[in-house]
Design a protein around this nucleic acid. Structure first.
Lengths: 228, 228
DNA sequence: TAACTGTCATAATTCTTTCATAGAATGAAT
DNA sequence: ATTCATTCTATGAAAGAATTATGACAGTTA
């Protein structure tokens, strides 16, 4: 599941350039040429990252960023601002509006991609393709493989995503509905109790290696993945 | 659990503006266009904060505030007064009627939200996700964990909420019925003596770490959480 | 066909509340 | 100061309620 990146940019040429680069890196590019289209899309489906032009006709980039930051549903989406200006105080304004990073045009594709990767790693670690290790477990998104001390563990797609999310978000308690949003996806209509079933399947798969204790039930709240 | 904010404002335009801003910040907006509607709603369900227009048809804002302040059930709900007047003596009258803060129209959404956050932080600190430490105890809502000097303490849901409330409201005595309102929730029909049982269980859980002395019994009044 | 997903029914577990009783504190009267 | 009655709190036990775990099944998808 490649990360979905929303590109908000009104100039068609730059729009295409961005899309090309983003796709080259294996991400899925979604294009929006103005604030309205961007808002509409985000409303429909949450992207994993937003590349946002500073100068937009109508509602500007900063205003857009602020709106998304104010809404709990979109608060955690990483945003990278894209601008022609280089002045320091503009940079500050951009970051204050809630952007995670900032890149000035003209930009090198390599730099852009590096920043995308860095931001994803920081804000949405489950979207980066890096191998994660917690406790005695190692999960590699690239090869879609989970191992515990050398031996491989077989997981279904959902259990894999669930484990990946947990391994990149340890210690914190997540309610069933938060897990549904994060692992199943926003706008998915599934019984909350279904989470229980997948938790059980995941525990079952981890049991032979003795790693099932990592998944903790927090009665009345949800589940937690932690080493203790 | 987003904080519920009751908006009492008769002008539809301002009403909507307020609701929009409040929702943008992730709070739940409840709208009432006159005193009767506001009273009815509060009677049914306690909001976490009230935004109250000074000028209302019929019963005015000040009168409303006074009523809520007089009722033990609603005494502690934070109230922010909303008014067009800027004169100092009006401000004083507003604050004397029991409002926690005061903002004059026209107001900037940023200012309004800042005040809401400030008041909520002041009056309902246990709603935040921040880790709190008192004595040798540390409680983290995000991870749903309590530790005393490195060792973890297991608590049931109610004991957890009770401790969280105490840790964010130290040095003050709370009656059983106040605790029921604050920890169990308003409109809950439970024996007052039940509080004793949960206090005991909490003490029991804290005893191994020697932190049980923090919970003090105040005969005839209730309980207090304090470091002495 | 085989693997996977979501839902349901039911079992197992944990938590809440209530109740009965024991224990402490308080104050008045001796 | 001591006794006693009264009031309030502590505690253990147990029924009852709520939440979670688990197994099975039917429908999908690859």
């Amino acid at each position: 599941m490649a990360a979905k990146i929303l590109l908000v940019e009104d100039e068609p040429a730059i729009q295409e350039l961005l899309a090309f680069n983003v796709r080259q890196c294996g991400y899925q590019a979604i294009q929006a040429e103005d604030a309205a289209a961007a808002l509409a899309h985000v409303n429909r489906e949450l992207p994993d990252l937003i590349l946002l032009d500073w100068m937009l006709p109508g509602i500007g980039g900063i205003e857009l960023a602020k709106r998304w930051r104010a809404d709990p549903r979109t608060r955690d989406i990483p945003i990278i601002m894209l601008t022609a200006r280089t002045e320091e105080r503009d940079k500050i304004a951009g970051l204050e509006s809630g952007a995670d990073d900032y890149i000035t045009k003209p930009f090198s594709p390599r730099e852009l991609m590096a920043r995308i990767r860095a931001v994803l790693r920081r804000r949405a670690p489950e979207m980066s393709e890096e191998t994660v290790s917690v406790g005695g477990l190692a999960l590699s998104p690239a090869t879609h493989r989970v191992t515990a001390g050398g031996t491989s563990i077989d997981l279904g797609p959902t259990e894999f995503r669930l484990l990946h999310f947990f391994m990149t978000h340890t210690e914190r308690v997540y309610s069933r509905s938060q897990l549904l949003d994060q692992v199943w996806g926003d706008h998915v209509f599934v019984e909350e109790r279904t989470v229980d079933v997948h938790i059980r399947r995941l525990r079952q798969a981890l049991e032979p290696s003795g790693q099932d204790g990592l998944i903790q039930t927090v009665r009345g709240s949800g589940y937690r993945f932690a080493t203790a």
